[in-house]
Nucleic acid binder design. Structure first.
Lengths: 171, 171
DNA sequence: CAGCTGACTTGATGATGTAGAAGTCAGAAG
DNA sequence: CTTCTGACTTCTACATCATCAAGTCAGCTG
């Protein structure tokens, strides 16, 4: 009952991941306030003071998150100007940021289902045109939804299998 | 270019989320080491010392994560016994834990695409039977893949719209 | 040009996460 | 019964996160 490890990966004791994408993603996204800023960006928020108010955070935290996310290329900073006001910056999601949609709404879906009373959170993600509920899930090329037992992992690089069993080779 | 906010949600200045599922999920999952333990659980790891070795963490951290995840109902602790050894515990994903698959592999997918050199991480998620690549994404009831512009959020509870514009009502 | 406002930056404090090292404890091996 | 080992717990030290408060600074308003 788990994801299948294919080929040289099969013997889990023999290899080690030292550039795991999950760990790298968590270094970038692992703070609660970061995820809240991203949530707001997905909801369409773009301006500094709106991020502060809507994430219920302080300006200091929001400023540091926006700075970091901009440096990483997840948000892009663009100047804008309202009549009679001075030039400000707005923060828009880049393609890299938009690709976080499955992560952010995946967290929402799981939190609503398992952490909220009655398995129901305050908001539901639906299809815009029909109002039908939307799920975040693993999906094959031809559109079937896939469970854990139908998935496998393959290595993208050759693994040189260590003969010792205490440490394993890195891939 | 963002998720549409429907009905009473449309005016983002007028409401506030104070039981956000994303924030709740991040309080539970927001640590790097937690996600690594979950990664291993999805790869089929069940025993204490395997978690320690494979996540490359210390036993102290792994013990505290396993304890927390067990208390939360994400892992279940079960005794097992090998011949000539004493009784140990193994940690298996519950349904609640298995539902994290889109989150964990969503992070992997994003990290591989955007944080790894050449957009390619060490491991790829594929369909077990065919070897075809698998994606984590938002999907409608009838199987179409949905982008940000095809999604909307609806409120599950009535929102009483505050007349003041500084704070907004909670939902 | 003085004041005000929005968008930050800086600093202090406490909580949590990470890492290393050492201590505890049940129970099979000898 | 003593030793040893695996599975934890405890302790210390340091980095990062979160909250609060105060300071800076460009440039529009009056």
């Amino acid at each position: 009952m788990s994801v299948s490890l294919e080929g040289a990966l099969a013997d889990r004791g023999r290899w080690r991941i030292d550039n795991c994408s999950i760990a790298m993603a968590m270094e970038v996204l692992g703070a609660r306030s970061t995820m809240l800023v991203l949530r707001e960006a997905l909801y369409g928020t773009r301006r500094f003071d709106d991020f502060v108010r809507r994430t219920h955070s302080t300006d200091a935290i929001v400023a540091s998150r926006l700075k970091r996310l901009t440096e990483l290329g997840i948000l892009a900073k663009q100047p804008y100007r309202e009549a009679g006001k001075r030039t400000r910056s707005e923060y828009c999601l880049t393609a890299m940021g938009r690709d976080l949609l499955p992560v952010v709404f995946g967290l929402m879906q799981w939190g609503s289902r398992h952490l909220q009373p009655e398995g129901k959170g305050p908001l539901t993600l639906v299809e815009r045109t029909t109002g039908e509920p939307v799920v975040i899930e693993a999906r094959s090329g031809d559109g079937r939804s896939l469970g854990m037992d139908e998935l496998a992992l393959v290595a993208n690089f050759p693994i040189d299998v260590a003969s010792s069993d205490d440490d394993g080779s890195s891939i």
